[in-house]
Amino acid sequence: NQASVVANQLIPINTALTLVMMRSEVVTPVGIPAKDIPRLVSMQVNRAVPLGTTLMPDMVKGYA
C-alpha cells in the first residue's frame, strides 16, 4: 500500500508547510503520495488541517 501525507500537528489555514508538519502513513482513503513531501514544503494549505488528517490535493494551494 502506498503511504500518504498526514498532518503531524494542527496546520492553520494559509500556513506554509514544513517537514515537521507532515508524516507519511498508509491510510484510507489515499491522499497526496508521501513521495511528494519535498514538493509540498513551502506550499500553503487553504483550510485548517487537524492533527492526523490526510492531506488531499485540494487542500494545498498550487498542488493539484
Rank of each mutant, 00 (worst) to 15 (best):
P50S: 12
G62C: 14
I32K: 00
Q44Y: 09
D58A: 07
L51K: 09
V27D: 02
P29L: 06
A64C: 15
S4R: 02
A64V: 15
A16W: 09
N14V: 03
N1V: 15
M43L: 12
P33E: 14
A34G: 12
E25S: 05
L51H: 12
D36F: 03
L51S: 13
M22W: 01
P38Q: 11
Q2P: 15
D58H: 13
I32V: 06
M21H: 11
I37F: 03
V45E: 01
R47M: 12
V20Y: 08
M22L: 08
G52D: 15
G31N: 01
D36Q: 04
Q9K: 09
A3P: 14
D58C: 14
P57G: 11
P33A: 10
M56N: 08
Y63H: 10
V60Q: 00
K61E: 09
I32P: 01
I37G: 05
L19P: 12
V45R: 00
L10I: 13
L55I: 12
A48D: 09
S4P: 00
V41W: 03
R47Y: 12
I13Q: 06
T15R: 05
G31Q: 02
M22C: 04
V5R: 02
R47T: 10
M43R: 06
V6G: 00
S42Y: 04
G31S: 02
T15A: 08
G62W: 04
L17W: 00
M59W: 10
R39H: 15
V5M: 02
N8R: 11
V41I: 11
P33I: 09
V49C: 08
A48G: 06
G52T: 03
L19K: 07
L10M: 12
R23Y: 05
P38W: 06
V6S: 03
M59Y: 11
Q9H: 05
L17P: 02
A64W: 04
G52E: 08
K61V: 11
Q2E: 15
P50A: 11
L40M: 08
R47P: 02
G62Y: 10
V41C: 12
G31L: 02
V60F: 05
V49I: 13
M22T: 02
G52V: 02
Q44V: 11
I13L: 08
M59C: 14
D36N: 05
M43S: 12
P29D: 13
V30M: 09
V45A: 07
V49L: 10
I32W: 02
N14Y: 06
L19A: 12
L40T: 01
A3F: 07
N1C: 15
T54H: 02
G52N: 11
P38F: 05
N8S: 13
V20N: 13
L10Y: 06
A48H: 10
V41H: 09
Q2I: 14
S42W: 08
K35V: 14
T18A: 08
R23S: 09
T15C: 05
M56T: 08
K61T: 13
M59P: 01
T18G: 05
Q2L: 13
V49S: 02
P12S: 05
